[in-house]
Nucleic acid binder design. Structure first.
Lengths: 214, 214, 214, 214
DNA sequence: CATGAATGAGCCTTCATTCAT
DNA sequence: TATGAATGAAGGCTCATTCAT
């Protein structure tokens, strides 16, 4: 009989290794976690890792891919049927929710590490940027509609609006890895308020105050 | 022989080493840049590094300190005498300007690396957070005033407003290290607009205005 | 089911593996060719190699045996009925022909590798020497006759004549693995000339003749 | 003071390492001798080796260079002022002497290993061939003279004569690494006899007998 | 018999740190 | 104080061999 492991079993092993790697990377960092650490965390031999990942870099890349795929999968499930401001609200809520989820603790930390890692590894950077292409296009389209319809200040560069929105999410995520007590929902409230005119309610301008004030 | 001269010399050597380290860390990463790399970049002997920094960790810490001190020095020069919205505008402009300055290329990259490094090194994290205490207090005070005076939505958590504002800056900085062509000034425009009610102008469509003005 | 069939099958598998091993060893070297390389070259599974050869050393030994057996088989077919100078001529021609045969490319390279390998592995050395016993005895007998009949200088040690003759063949074979454009037949001409007095013809200059003929 | 080691000391360390490497390679083989083995044989730390040789391949190459340089140095000391047959006699004697010298035991074994190694490593092969260029040219010139003056059979290819002569030396050296009791001087006698018409003295042919016979 | 996943000792190489000069 | 040679622990990776299926 073939001892060739079934595809499901092989996938399970990959998952087992990736899970262990995520924990090790989260705890020790991408550079300092060794493959021996990971093999022990996965309760496998060192050599086994190499059946599933040819190099450490490939393992890191697999971690990166899995995390963006996971996000995309959840995200794309609901996003398509929305439009305009909803798209942005949804993205913001979704990402802040994930940031708040204790189960994402390691994933969030490793995500931050990968952002720094992308500065040194072209492949990681390419993967990182590529995973942003589609969400970015969606957001840009939504922003364009909102600018055309006069809701968003048309003098602002859509691309840079996108950078700032994504930046808010990334920047808050970093801070939350530093100070886990930060409440993602409250940060989401702030973000949403900023994006929909409910942050600055302009007391000194009575017309604006009435428009935007609750 | 004069201690003053040797102190100056020593300070110059430290600077020389820190400059070299910044370049090496920027290029190779905190973990992968070796002390030999740094000594060569500084045109010093390997051993001499150890006269000025006892360990590599101490050198990294010194890099971190110097970068926050530099920012603080510039920043605190002008900021104190301002108040209210000015404080925030000033901070935003200041940080985006620095982000845009080609001379800050290495410093910006290393800053991002240090954010990730803080996840693994308690001392780095403590330093990072400590350097935020004062600016954060200033911003919080300004926000409080602006909420009390009715300019900013009082239902939002000041602390989390601070997190989001800082997050925008950090998040855009990361993206700029990935895609240097991002224009920091345009991102600053967006940020300022968001913080002062000029992003979402919700005008021209009364039905929508009512929806969002709730 | 028939044991005969399985024996044939087993022999075929062995041959298949040995052929693959010869190619891998030729290309990568005895130490650097891995059993996985060989299994892939043989289009077999890694595990199946171990059904036919218990260790890598045993596989190498089998390669060595097969190559000397092949030579002996061809060689002994015709050689016995010869005598005197013919024996030597025949051996020289035979070995140079094989050296020249493109089909022997890998075998010749691996033979050279095995000569070096014999320095480290007693079993290989023993096999190597043992395979020389019979041809050496034949050659020695022929040499003895030729010395007794006055054809070959009787002051020379037969054993060392044998060493030099075999050495010529081995040494030219090494050079041909380095520089494949060497023409084995021309080297055979030289060798045969040396062995039969047609190399140094010392003619035409009586003064020199006397010098060298002493 | 500069701890920079003097050039002589550095050269001594290199020699120390090369000597140790030669012993280890001789005993264990080029592939199987580890750098740790060598460092221990040299009574140095493992890391130290890497101050003097960047890689194992470079160490092997240094071994190869040193051995050919040593030969050349001795050889060229006396060879130039000779001509004709003397050149060949001298080369033969010189190489057989070295082969016979117990102090060359390891060097001779490693030389054989390098011949096989050259099949796998282009740089080794290039070095090997390059070291033959000059002696080969000398020998070819001597052969040409001897053919023109009618001493050597003009129908033989000079290049292949050279291959056979060098081959005799190499082939006997291999056999001597296998069977150290082989007497290099006696093999030298045989070789010299073959090269000067004193091997085949042609009893059955009276004309030849007179020409070549003693 | 066949298969290839699993094992883990061991290899080459790197690098922070020490220390004799 | 300055230098860089020396140290050796540790890391990524390989590979002969075993064994469950």
């Amino acid at each position: 009989m073939s001892p060739k492991i079934s595809n499901e079993l092989a996938a399970a092993r990959r998952t087992q290794i990736l899970d262990a790697a995520l924990r090790c990377f989260s705890k020790l960092g991408l550079d300092r976690a060794t493959l021996r650490d990971i093999s022990q965390e996965a309760e496998l031999s060192l050599g086994s890792i190499y059946h599933y990942f040819r190099t450490k870099a490939e393992l890191i890349e697999a971690i990166r891919q899995r995390s963006t795929e996971a996000e995309d999968a959840e995200y794309l499930e609901d996003a398509p049927q929305m439009e305009g401001q909803q798209v942005i609200d949804f993205a913001v809520d979704h990402l802040f929710d994930q940031m708040n989820d204790p189960a994402s603790y390691d994933a969030n930390r490793v995500a931050v590490m990968l952002w720094a890692h992308a500065l040194l590894d072209e492949k990681t950077l390419a993967g990182q940027l590529e995973s942003l292409v589609e969400p970015r296009a969606q957001v840009l389209q939504a922003l364009q509609h909102l600018q055309e319809s006069g809701h968003i200040n048309p003098n602002l560069s859509p691309r840079h609006i996108g950078n700032v929105i994504l930046g808010m999410l990334m920047g808050v995520q970093i801070q939350k890895t530093w100070e886990p007590e930060i409440d993602g929902r409250k940060a989401a409230d702030v973000t949403r308020a900023m994006l929909t005119g409910n942050f600055w309610i302009g007391a000194g301008d009575s017309s604006k105050k009435e428009q935007n004030g609750r």
